[in-house]
Design a binder for these strands. Structure first.
Ligand SMILES: [Zn+2]
Ligand SMILES: [Zn+2]
Ligand SMILES: [Zn+2]
Ligand SMILES: [Zn+2]
Lengths: 138, 138
DNA sequence: CCACGAGTTGACAATCGTTCTCAATTGATC
DNA sequence: GATCAATTGAGAACGATTGTCAACTCGTGG
C-alpha cells in the first residue's frame, strides 16, 4: 500500500490515574460482598475521599468492562459490584449477609458449551450464581 | 387444643378471572421469547385487548410468583418475561433474535447443591442462563 | 333481581437507580 | 507555563417500576 494505509487502531482513550479513580479502587478492596454504586459512593464519603456519584457510576462501569469487578443484579434490578479475581468464576452468595465465595466448575463450563452447541448456538457465554444461607447466618 | 388453636394460615386473597388477566395470559402464550412488560402492554393494545400498564405489571408479577412465567433481567436491568413450563429449567437465549430454548441439567443441579454444601451454605437456589447466537442468526 | 364487600383496574403521580449535560478542573506533554 | 484531551461533579433528565385512590366488577346471599 502507498498512502491509503490508514490503519484503524482502536483509539481507546488512555485512562488517567486520578484521585477519584484511586479512591474507588481502594474502596472496592475494602469489602468482600456485593455493593451498589450508591453504597460505594456513601462509603467513599465516610472515608473522607468524597467522589461524585456520577463519577462512581462511570468508574464502576470502566472497572466492570476491564473485568476488574463483577456485576450482579439484585432481584429488583439494581446493579451491585464486587472486586474479583480476573479468571472466570461464579458466586456463592449468602442471602442474609451477602458473604460471597468465588467458585469454579469446569464441568459446568463444559456442559453449557456442549448443550448450546447441540442446539446450534455459537459464541456461548453464561451467567450462574448460587444463593444460600451461610453457616454464620443460621 | 381447646380455643387458642388459631392457626395462622396465609390469607392469600383469592384471584379473580378478569378480562385483563385472561388477556395477559393469552398474550404470553402468543410468543416464545422474553419480552418486557411494556412490550407486552403494547402487544395487548394492538390485539384490541387494551390493558392498563400498571395492571400488566401487576399481573406479570402474580404470574411470576405463581411460577407461570419466568423473569430475566436484561443487561441494563430491565425485567423481561416468558411463559414457561412449570418444572425447574434454564434458558439458552440467542443474543441476536432472542430465540429461547428451555434446557435441563441434572448434573448442574447436583453440582450447585454440593458446592454450596461444601462451603456450609444451606437453602440453596441458583440462576443460570446461557447466551449465544442461534443458527438462524449466523 | 338487587344490594354488598372484597378484589381489580387504570390514569396519573411519585420513586429511584442510572445516565446525560456542560462548564470548570486536572494530568500529561512539550 | 502553555496546551489540550480526559475527567469531574452538580444538577437536570430519563425510564422502568411502583404507589395512589376513586371508579368498577365479580361472586355471594338475600
Ligand atoms: Zn466474581
Ligand atoms: Zn462459568
Ligand atoms: Zn423458563
Ligand atoms: Zn437449575
Amino acid at each position: 500500500m502507498t498512502s491509503t494505509d490508514a490503519s484503524p487502531p482502536p483509539p481507546n482513550p488512555p485512562l488517567r490515574p486520578t484521585r477519584q479513580r484511586r479512591a474507588v479502587v481502594e474502596a472496592m478492596a475494602s469489602f468482600a460482598d456485593f455493593r451498589s454504586a450508591q453504597e460505594i459512593h456513601e462509603l467513599l464519603g465516610q472515608r473522607g475521599e468524597a467522589v461524585g456519584l456520577a463519577t462512581v457510576y462511570r468508574t464502576l462501569q470502566r472497572l466492570a468492562e476491564a473485568g476488574e469487578v463483577d456485576v450482579l443484579r439484585t432481584e429488583d434490578g439494581e446493579a451491585i459490584y464486587r472486586r474479583c479475581s480476573d479468571t472466570h468464576h461464579h458466586h456463592l452468595v449468602c442471602r442474609a449477609c451477602g458473604a460471597t465465595v468465588e467458585v469454579e466448575g469446569p464441568a459446568v463450563e463444559r456442559w453449557t458449551r456442549s448443550i448450546a452447541g447441540e442446539h446450534g448456538y455459537a459464541d456461548v457465554s453464561h451467567t450462574l450464581e448460587i444463593f444460600g444461607t451461610c453457616a454464620a447466618c443460621r
